[in-house]
Simulated scan of single mutants.
Amino acid sequence: MTEEDVGPGSAWFVGEDPVAAIRDGSATAPADWPRIAVESGAAGDRDDYYRRLKDATTAAAREAVRERERADDRQLLHAVRAMDDADRTANELAERLAEWGGSLFDESGSGVEYAREVAGRSPAGPAEDRVVSLARRVVDLAEEARDLESFIEGRAPVAAPNLSALAGPVLAARLVSLAGGLEPLAKKPSGTLQVLGAEDALFAHLRGHAPSPKHGVIYTHEYVRGTRPEDRGSAARALAGKLTIAARIDHYSGDYRPDLEADLDERMRAIRERAAGDEGGPDA
Results as ranks from 00 to 15, higher is better:
Glu113Thr: 09
Arg116His: 04
Arg116Lys: 06
Glu117Ser: 10
Glu117His: 08
Ala119Met: 15
Arg121Ile: 01
Ser122Leu: 13
Pro123Gly: 03
Ala124Asn: 04
Pro126Gln: 11
Pro126Trp: 11
Ala127Gly: 04
Ala127Val: 13
Glu128Asn: 00
Glu128Ala: 01
Asp129Phe: 09
Arg130Thr: 08
Val131Glu: 00
Val131Cys: 00
Val132Ser: 00
Ser133Pro: 02
Leu134Lys: 04
Arg136Trp: 00
Arg137Cys: 09
Val138Arg: 02
Val139Tyr: 11
Leu141Ile: 10
Leu141Lys: 09
Leu141Gly: 10
Glu143Pro: 13
Glu144Leu: 15
Asp147Ile: 09
Ser150Tyr: 12
Phe151Tyr: 10
Ile152Val: 12
Glu153Phe: 04
Arg155Ala: 04
Arg155His: 07
Arg155Tyr: 04
Arg155Trp: 07
Arg155Glu: 06
Ala156Arg: 02
Pro157Ile: 05
Val158Leu: 10
Val158Ser: 11
Ala160Gly: 07
Ala160Leu: 12
Pro161Arg: 02
Pro161Asn: 04
Asn162Pro: 09
Asn162Val: 13
Leu163Arg: 03
Leu163Glu: 02
Leu163Val: 09
Leu163His: 05
Leu163Ala: 08
Leu163Tyr: 03
Ser164Leu: 06
Ser164Asp: 09
Ala165Asp: 13
Leu166Lys: 11
Gly168Thr: 08
Gly168Val: 09
Gly168Glu: 07
Pro169Tyr: 06
Pro169Asp: 07
Pro169Leu: 03
Leu171Ile: 15
Ala172Ser: 14
Ala173Val: 03
Arg174Lys: 14
Val176Met: 11
Ser177Leu: 14
Ser177Pro: 12
Ser177Met: 09
Leu178Ala: 13
Leu178Asp: 09
Gly181Arg: 09
Gly181Cys: 02
Leu182Tyr: 04
Glu183Cys: 01
Pro184Arg: 11
Pro184Thr: 14
Ala186Val: 08
Lys188Gln: 08
Lys188Cys: 03
